[in-house]
């Protein structure tokens, strides 16, 4: 069996290597979703790296498109495209921009403006259900993203329409663009707000593979016809001490020397 912990480390290393010195990246909010993506792409999703548009695939949408670096690195590691392509990330002439682009093999939807992914996911899961297909749809959102009213339109709709093939995951890293989510627009207790909309809600640790596995196993067993909402507690900048737990890692840039230092230190932990 694939060692998910090792995969997550390799993905983080690739992300650090892809950073463009002195360029502002959404590094903190990319590092917070590495375990979720690693778990999905290496252990859970039905995907076809050499045939990305295979009709039997599950769909993953990164609604928090600013976390694209983690998605690109995961897709690259999973075999969707070469490391050479990944290393063009955010560079002039590249097709891998800072916000997720569907021009990249394996990326289903171009995102970057918040509050789009869940509704698109509903459209896909509706089509799968009506066509009696078993494909599932996973949408990863940020906690700050839930400020967008469009998400609440989608939350109302998916619960009412019993879209049990739809799984929303919230990367609850507790920070958004300007400050802590608790200071900007506190949504807690989020679980109690989502449940009455006829969703199954799971509170989980977004960095612990065993707990993530338990959560997804529970979803697989669920038979009450409700869509699934995972609140994954995460840590911004997770896995790299220079960024971990720091609000400023949301838009952090590093110079060339710091980048090499961070990578050097990170390699010692492999």
């Amino acid at each position: 069996m694939i060692n998910l912990v090792t995969e997550a480390k390799v993905i983080r290393l690739m992300m650090l290597e892809a950073l463009v010195p002195d360029e502002s990246h959404h590094i903190g909010c990319s590092l917070s979703i590495v375990e979720i993506l690693t778990f999905l792409y290496f252990n859970h999703l039905n995907v076809y790296p050499h045939d990305p548009k295979n009709v039997r695939r599950d769909i993953f949408i990164l609604s928090k498109g600013h976390g694209s670096l983690a998605l690109y690195a995961t897709l690259c590691r999973r075999g969707f495209f070469s490391k050479k392509l990944l290393m063009t990330y955010d560079k002039n002439g590249s097709k891998l921009p800072e916000h997720a682009s569907s021009n990249v093999p394996g990326v289903e939807l171009s995102t970057g403006s918040l509050g789009h992914g869940l509704s698109v996911g509903i459209g896909l899961s509706t089509a799968f259900k009506n066509d009696n297909k078993n494909n599932k749809v996973f949408v990863l959102l940020s906690d700050g993203e839930l400020d967008e009213g469009s998400n609440w339109e989608a939350i109302m709709y998916a619960g009412y329409h019993h879209l049990d093939n739809l799984i929303a995951i919230v990367d609850k890293n507790d920070f958004q663009g300007y400050a802590a989510t608790s200071k900007v627009l506190d949504l807690s207790p989020l679980c109690k707000k989502i449940t009455p909309f006829q969703w199954n809600v799971y509170e989980t640790d977004g960095h612990d593979f065993l707990i993530l596995k338990k959560t997804f196993d529970q979803i697989n067993k669920s038979k009450n016809g409700r869509p699934h909402f995972i609140i994954a507690q995460t840590i911004k900048g997770r896995g790299v001490p220079y960024f971990e737990g720091k609000f400023e890692s949301h838009y952090k840039s590093v110079d060339k020397a710091t980048k090499q230092k961070i990578i050097g230190y990170f390699k010692t932990t492999l």
Partner: peptide, 15 residues
């Protein structure tokens, strides 16, 4: 809920 409507339309069209 028009924002949701266009998103759903897009998901259907993507499929």
């Amino acid at each position: 809920a028009e924002q949701n409507m266009i998103g759903i339309a897009s998901g259907l069209a993507l499929s």
